[in-house]
């Protein structure tokens, strides 16, 4: 199974308390599961501390770049060793 780096960009880094994790996953679905399972509770705790009641998904609130290039969330992709997946919060403004 390929090892890929998942990078939490900008605000995600602060909210989830991690900059990069290396994980062994083959597909986008597996990457999603990994992120939601391992960081979902961190995110939930953080947003509760901000007084927000609504449950939020990390993945659904992210734009994803694979090796710096845009991918669609529904795209079927098979990873290879060393791939870099950037999660950017789906926000913009300024």
């Amino acid at each position: 199974m390929p090892a890929i780096n998942i990078n939490f960009i900008g605000p995600w880094r602060v909210l989830l308390g991690a900059r990069t994790v290396t994980v062994k996953v083959e597909s986008i679905d597996e990457a999603r599961n990994y992120v939601e399972t391992n960081f979902g509770p961190v995110f939930e705790k953080k947003i509760k501390s901000m007084g927000v009641g609504k449950k939020q998904s990390i993945w659904d609130n992210s734009n994803i770049l694979l090796n710096g290039k845009n991918i669609k969330l529904h795209e079927q992709i098979t990873f290879k060793d060393g791939d870099k997946l950037d999660l950017l919060p789906k926000v913009a403004g300024g």
């Binding site: 605000p11 901000m50 926000v91 913009a92 403004g93």
Partner: peptide, 15 residues
């Protein structure tokens, strides 16, 4: 709102 509260407009720089 949550993200803007955390990092403001400068939060966009990394993106």
């Amino acid at each position: 709102s949550m993200i803007m509260h955390q990092t403001g407009t400068a939060g966009w720089i990394d993106s």
